[in-house]
Amino acid sequence: MTDFQEAFAQALLSEAAPEDGPLRDVFAQPAFAVYRNTVLKGCIDALEANFPTLARLVGSDWFRSAALAYVRAQPPRDSRLLAYGDEGFGGFVQSLPSAAELPYLVGIARADSLWRACHVAANASVLPTGLLARLAPDDLATRVLRPHPATQWAWFDDLPVASLWSHERAGEAVPPTLAWCGEGLLFTRDDGAVRWQSLPRAGCAFLEACAAGHPLAEAAQHALDLDPDIPFAPVLQQLLCAGAFTEEPLP
């Protein structure tokens, strides 16, 4: 019975196990449901734990129903349930007809993924806030700032995902005056705890350029090209104060 496990797995993920085939007497036993329930509940619980803000925003019933459909379509690829859903759950949820009026769900899911990436990232020392002030101007311009492994960020075009996510995550009501425009979100880790704050587009672009290895002056120019109306010094100060960079050299 070389295909026993493949047939068993497919029967667990299907809505109704096959009524014929060599394993029909196994699937017909009422106890088969114990395995199916354990597998589906394990996957759905993992998604709910991985996307807690999305789950709160849409409500548990809607979330678990969407999660069940996702599990059947895309079961976990490997045992890393801590990363389950990062590759496609947000897009899957956004594509559901009942999500058409909620265009920010994919962004909320992305923010939940970034929170987790920050939570589990490698440890590293943080670049002290005063270090750049002690550098000569030429050294400063050519200095490459390396984002801390825990630092995660995203810019969300056109939608106030950062505000929605932050309010929902903190269990607060979303203010009725919310401006319907693009926002950025920054996650950093402080003494083991994940912290988040909104970040201007220039900050996201700057981090992007730093991560690509560009020296500070070039990265700053890149940020200003994208977001010319913002004074850059406060953005850099915000990132330094948040501990967004590490002083450890590239591996």
């Binding site: 493949e6 354990t38 394990g42 996957c43 976990p76 045992s79």
Partner: peptide
Amino acid sequence: RFAGGWLPD
């Protein structure tokens, strides 16, 4: 673990 992925059971 099976060809199509991994199941938590």
